Amino acid sequence: MSDRDCGDITYGYVDPNWPRPNTDDSACIIIYGYVPSLALGILGVALFGIALISHTYLLVRNKTWYFSTVIVGLVMEIIGYAFRLLASQKNPYSVPYFVAQYFCIVVAPVFFSAAIYTILSVLISAVGRKYAPLSPKLILWIFIACDVIATVVQITGAALVGSAYSNQRDPTTANNILLGGLAFQVFSFAVFILCFVLFVYKARKVMSKDLKVFSAVVMIATLAVYLRTCFRLAETAEGLLEYLSTHEAFFGCLEFLPIVVAVHLLNWWHPGRWIEKT
C-alpha cells in the first residue's frame, strides 16, 4: 500500500478515466500532463529501431567508428519510447517510467550532436584546414565538452524537477537549473552551426558536387536537432506543467519528428558513403 498523501490536487493533471494506482512509485499527478500516446510510443520504438539496424550495418561496413555515438543515441531513444509505451499501457503516474523516458529522450540527441561534430571534423581533414575557423580536434573538444556540461546540468535539473512535482513541492529552482543547461546548449550549438556554415562557404569552390550535397543534408539534420533543442528550451522556460509540455502534439512535432528526420537523413547520407576515408 502507498503511504503518499496526495490530499486535494489543485495543480497538475489527473486522468478521470485512469485512477492513480496505490503504489509508492506513483506520483499524485500525471507528470506528462497527459496519458502518453500508444501510437507515438510504437512509432518511436519502430522508427528508431529501424535506424539502429541500418546505422549499425553502415558503421561496421564502412568502419566509421567515429560515428558510433549515433548507435548510443538510438539505443537511448528506443529505451525512452519503450518507457513511454509502458506509461501509456501500465501506469502514467509512475515516477520511474517518467524519469527513465525523460532522461533517455533528453540525453539521446547529445550523442547525435557529437556525431555531427565528428562529420565536420572529418570534412575539415578531407577538404583542408585552411577553410575552417577551428582545427578538427578543437571542433571536437570544444563542442563535445560544451554538450557534456550542458547535459550534466540538464540531468541534475530534470531529476530535481521530477522529484519536486511528484512530491507537490515548488519546482522553480530545479526548473531554473534545467533551463540554464538548455540555454547553454542552445548557445553552443548555434556557435557550432556558425562554424559549419563558415567552413562550407569558404570551401565551396574546392568541394565536389557530392560533398556539397552531403554538407547541405548534414546541415538540414543539424538544424532539425537544433529545432528540437530550441523547443526544449521554450518548454522549460514556460514550465513543466504548462501549455507546451502538457500537449503531446508539441512533443510529437518538435521532439520526436525532428530527431527521426535527422537520424534517417544521416542514415542515407552516411559519412562512410560520402566522405573519402581518411
Rank of each mutant, 00 (worst) to 15 (best):
G252N: 09
A51M: 04
E77C: 06
A183V: 13
W274H: 11
L244N: 03
L194S: 03
Y97A: 01
L241P: 00
V200P: 01
S2I: 14
M207S: 00
A82D: 03
N17I: 00
R84A: 13
W274T: 00
Y102K: 04
Y226W: 10
L266H: 10
A150S: 15
Y13V: 12
V191H: 03
A27N: 09
K202T: 01
F83H: 06
V110Q: 12
A126P: 11
H247K: 10
L140C: 12
G49R: 08
P16M: 01
E242T: 02
L182H: 04
A115P: 03
V106W: 08
A108G: 07
Y165P: 00
S26N: 04
P36G: 09
S113V: 04
T246W: 09
V152H: 00
A262G: 10
A234P: 05
P109Q: 10
L123H: 01
M1I: 13
L257H: 03
A145S: 15
A150C: 08
A190E: 11
T236A: 14
L59A: 07
V261D: 03
H55E: 15
Y93D: 01
F196C: 01
T236M: 11
L123Y: 03
Q89D: 06
G49M: 09
V152C: 11
D147L: 04
D5H: 15
A216L: 13
